[in-house]
Design a protein around this nucleic acid. Structure first.
Lengths: 204, 204, 204, 204
DNA sequence: GATGAATGAGTTTTCATTCAT
DNA sequence: TATGAATGAAAACTCATTCAT
């Protein structure tokens, strides 16, 4: 029992340090960008020695991946909750649209990380990295398919359209950032939804 | 006349080396990505000494910029020709759509460069870099505005929609690449156009 | 207590490496001049990796500065001790004279470093560098002023004369080096003091 | 005779180019300092090709030397004229003092070059460089000796005192520059002369 | 003689990773 | 487990000099 306790304590302590490192990485990533993420800075920010990083993570790549996962976790979580919900496909898409626009509106620093992620994503060696994005496309495609099945939409290659839908949001976000506009997310979301709904809707 | 000839020869020789360096940079960029673009590699690939690079280009940044310009030149050229043409807005958008899909279909390696460019684009220090993209957005927005003026489209924030339109293509391209599908660009282009046309069309 | 010991050991070890680097820099500086001071050479001479230099010093500039400080530290220390002493102004000047001549007699290699320092000193960007020299001029000027106040000297622009006094020593040192004479510092010092005392003395 | 003319023409042309290169080097040296003197810049400034520099001068070192000679030529010339004149030793020293102070007052940019020269001067490999300075010391020493012979001064090691005398001027100049004072050279010259005259004067 | 394209050794700096303690 | 001193490969950039034309 004592051993059990000890082990538990140890584990929680371990998790604590691990999380501290991750938090440091996330902070660096969001506030200073990809180039701010050096092992030195992470260690310093996390308040541990450089060597310790390698106790918890195999190498920088792994830290980066974990950090990206953690960063986008809220968005992914909210999106999946929506997609798994019991609303109709159209309402689900609206929800997705809104939460994406909101997320990047609040975390505009993340945009350049997202694009960095894309860069890695499409490099041969990092094929595995795109899992986040891929699953998301699949899930959105599922919703579209459901819409088609319900006779709401005309038939189409749902994954391609899903990708378009998602990227269209990125275009909107970038334009918003460029314009320096932050508020009124709803209107912009409505614009996107409007186009895609009209564009896909099955008119009897 | 002799002098004229000489000068011509010299100039062409100069241009030759310059082009060789640029070609090396382009090759590296497309096949190995941004991180493959080191001055050492460029020099090696171009078959010149490292110092020679600095005779023709002030620094790495300039080479990178020139390479990106050269890479996207055909696309930019074709796009602008279309946009400047005298077709109706709808035909122009169709043309743009098709030539983008075709370009990235043939140069799929370039996708990750494009995203890298995006990354730079949104980093504070390189604000100016996005000129390529920005002007393109503006031009597409102009076409959309023309469509609105002609009563073809309902009114909307043309720049936001333009950004969406362009990005939707990127989504489509990425999905095509993921699917390993290359042919049948027309169909996919039609899909995009279909959505946006229906989505924006003024229904009397 | 164990911890205390450990920390002490660690600190001394750290100081050891740091000093080793500094010694290497000093050696290079004195024996090969400014142009011998490359990071490669310093690392090699200190028996550490190049990267290690940057663990202990931010950049080359800092190493150079630290090395110059270390080199001139004995002279500065002795001079300031003299200047802060409670002897009369005339005895203080004699002391300064003697210790300067002695110092450069023993470290004649350093002369050219001194001049390098001067060179930096008067280059626009390194205005701040001359602090070593400037404070010294000020201090000597203070002594001269004291002499004036005591009625020992006639009034004059003390800082200008201080600069002259110091530089006159440099002239003497250079001439001694040229002549290949090393001994009999006292006599030469007396010569300088003689001129300046007679030159400045208030005759009744 | 034709050949003779041709040769003359050639020679004068040659001298012309040579001088142009030298002028460029001098301009660079005075306005941008030692570090501004790159072969590229010299060639550009002189309006010749880089290779041409090597037709007229063996290497950079030679250009530098020639440039320094040219820069200090007016000062050297005036000084030697004074020293060779038929005034008394005291008047000669006064003249030297004044023309030095004036020279550096007008060409304060040159100070840092002078010190750079010093640095080279005392580096083993460039022993020969100090000839300018050495001869000057010798000449001043001659004047001092003359003064001793005339019973004007007490006996002393004239070369050491000559070096002191010259360096004292450098100290004065540096202090003047530091103070940002430019005018009233005469007063400062008088100060130096006053000290050395009283210091060396034979009082019956 | 004049050119200027090309060179390449040499310089500073960064940073992920290792390893003895 | 945790440390952090040490590493060294890799990167960008400079510039005096050479040499074919």
């Amino acid at each position: 029992m004592d051993d059990d306790k000890k082990q538990k304590r140890k584990k929680s302590l371990e998790a604590f340090t691990r999380q501290g490192i991750l938090d440091a990485a996330i902070g660096l990533l969001t506030h200073e960008g990809i180039h701010g993420l050096t092992m030195d800075r992470v260690a310093m920010e996390a308040g541990v020695a450089k060597g310790t990083l390698y106790v918890y993570f195999k190498n920088k790549e792994v830290i980066l991946d974990a950090a990206l996962d953690a960063i986008f976790d809220p968005l992914v979580r909210e999106s999946l909750a929506l997609l798994d919900g019991d609303q109709g496909p159209d309402r689900k898409l609206e929800g997705i649209s809104l939460c994406h626009l909101r997320f990047f509106d609040e975390h505009r620093d993340l945009i350049r990380i997202l694009f960095f992620d894309r860069e890695r994503m499409h490099s041969e060696k990092n094929h595995y990295t795109d899992s986040r994005y891929r699953t998301f496309v699949e899930r959105v495609a599922d919703v579209l398919d459901e819409g088609v099945r319900q006779g709401l939409f005309v038939p189409f290659d749902s994954r391609k359209v899903a990708a378009m839908f998602i990227e269209a949001h990125m275009g909107m976000v970038m334009q918003r950032i460029h314009d320096g506009v932050s508020g009124d997310v709803e209107k912009d979301s409505k614009q996107i939804i409007d186009i895609f709904m009209k564009g896909l809707r099955n008119r009897k």
